[in-house]
Deep mutational scan, measured.
Amino acid sequence: HSHMSHTQVIELERKFSHQKYLSAPERAHLAKNLKLTETQVKIWFQNRRYKTKRKQLSSEL
């Protein structure tokens, strides 16, 4: 499990705020920019979407 830097997370968050789903080319581009693997980016987005979904569910209770 590799640790992401604060800067990388900020960039991922910024991208996520604009779009929740990335196409393969977008993911490849973002990964390259942030010096991450595409898998890391993919998993981060999956986890981030899951967290957002959970938060929405709990706020509706």
Rank of each mutant, 00 (worst) to 15 (best):
V41R: 01
E26R: 02
I10E: 12
Q56W: 10
E13Q: 06
M4P: 05
L22H: 01
K32Q: 10
Y50W: 11
I43Y: 07
S2W: 13
E38A: 08
S59I: 09
K20N: 09
E26M: 05
W44T: 00
E13T: 04
S2V: 10
K53H: 07
S17T: 09
R27G: 03
A28H: 10
A28G: 05
Q19Y: 06
I10G: 05
E13S: 03
L30F: 05
M4Q: 02
T7P: 04
I10L: 12
Y21F: 08
W44E: 02
V41T: 01
H29I: 14
E60K: 06
S59N: 15
H6C: 15
R49L: 07
N33V: 15
H6A: 12
R48N: 04
A28L: 09
N33D: 11
H3P: 09
S58A: 11
Q46K: 15
Q40W: 03
V41N: 01
Q8L: 04
N33I: 15
S23N: 06
M4Y: 08
Y50R: 15
P25K: 13
S58G: 12
S23M: 01
H29N: 11
M4N: 01
R27K: 05
N33L: 15
K42I: 07
Q8A: 06
H1W: 08
T52C: 15
Q19K: 12
K53I: 10
S17I: 08
E38L: 06
Q40A: 06
H6K: 12
Q40G: 02
I10V: 07
R14A: 09
T7S: 12
A31I: 02
F45A: 00
A31T: 02
K15H: 13
Q40P: 00
A24P: 10
H1I: 08
K55N: 11
I43L: 09
H1T: 11
A24F: 11
K20W: 06
S59V: 11
N47V: 08
Q8R: 04
Q46W: 09
R49N: 04
I10K: 11
K35R: 13
W44Y: 04
T37N: 04
Y21Q: 03
R48S: 04
T37C: 03
S58M: 09
R54V: 11
Q56P: 10
V9S: 04
H6W: 12
K55Q: 12
K55I: 09
L61G: 14
H29E: 15
E13R: 05
V41Y: 01
P25W: 11
M4L: 09
H18P: 02
E60W: 07
T39A: 11
K55V: 09
R48M: 10
P25N: 13
F45M: 02
K42Q: 10
M4G: 02
R14E: 07
R48W: 04
Q40N: 02
T39E: 14
F45Q: 01
L36I: 05
I10D: 08
S2F: 14
H6F: 07
Q19M: 07
Q19V: 07
P25F: 12
Q8K: 05
I43P: 00
K35T: 05
L57W: 04
S2T: 12
H18V: 11
R48A: 11
Q19T: 11
S17M: 13
Q46L: 06
E26L: 04
I43V: 08
L12G: 01
Q40T: 04
K51Q: 14
H3A: 09
L12M: 03
H1P: 08
Y50Q: 14
W44L: 02
K51F: 09
K55M: 12
I10C: 15
S58N: 14
Y21P: 01
L57K: 13
Q19S: 10
L12H: 00
V9A: 07
K42S: 06
E26D: 06
I10N: 07
K20Q: 13
H1A: 08
W44C: 03
E13V: 06
Q40R: 02
L36D: 00
K32Y: 07
R48I: 10
L34H: 01
F16H: 02
L34F: 02
S58D: 15
S5I: 03
K15P: 00
T39N: 11
Q56D: 11
K55L: 12
K20S: 07
T7E: 14
K53M: 09
I43H: 09
W44S: 03
H3S: 09
N33K: 15
H1S: 08
R49W: 04
P25Y: 11
K20R: 09
K53P: 09
